[in-house]
Amino acid sequence: MKLYIEIFLTFLRLGAFSFGGGYAMIPLIERDVCTTKKWIEREKLYDIFSVSEALPGAIALNASTFVGYSIGGIWGAVAALLGNLVPSVLIVFALIASYVHFKDNTAVQNAFNGIRPAIIALIVYAAYKIAKSGIKDFVTVIIFVCAFVACLVFVVPPIPVIIAAVVAGIVTKMVRRKSKKISDDERGGQL
């Protein structure tokens, strides 16, 4: 029970401060879940994020639920999901109620002008960390560049990009295993 409360409170705090949606949330989750609480290893967290991205629905919600599950099973998932939902619901409700009053407030607008570059930094940092764990050789560099260009220049939606990348990964590894087997066989034959 104590663990579930801790998961709930962690995601409550993360939910209340994660501006900019799922991607910007990655460094925040990483700091709490990997560095402070040591609940999951970093590499595994990046894989959880990668899979969450490929599932339907809100990425931040998927990622939180997935992380919650890997910490505390089904109830861990529920605790993380609820923790992430509560601040959203309360804050949006409060903001709508007071929106007319602060809509044209320059201080609020300027605060967001300041927050935005920080959010972009969070997202770039998340990309950098995932790239560091995922880019290991020439093929992965190509996949990374293709994914970025396909989205930015050719406006391809994420799902076709993800499917193509998964297929590319499986095919590459299969070809490598095969060529490794052939070269092993050749070596065996020579001996």
């Binding site: 990655i26 490929a54 995932i130 293709c146 994914a147 260009v149 989205c151 993800i162 990964g169 499986i170």
Partner: peptide, 18 residues
Amino acid sequence: SALYGLRPAIAGIVLYAA
């Protein structure tokens, strides 16, 4: 193998979001 292909693609998509 699937994750091997997925990770760099996600890095690219996240960078695109930024």
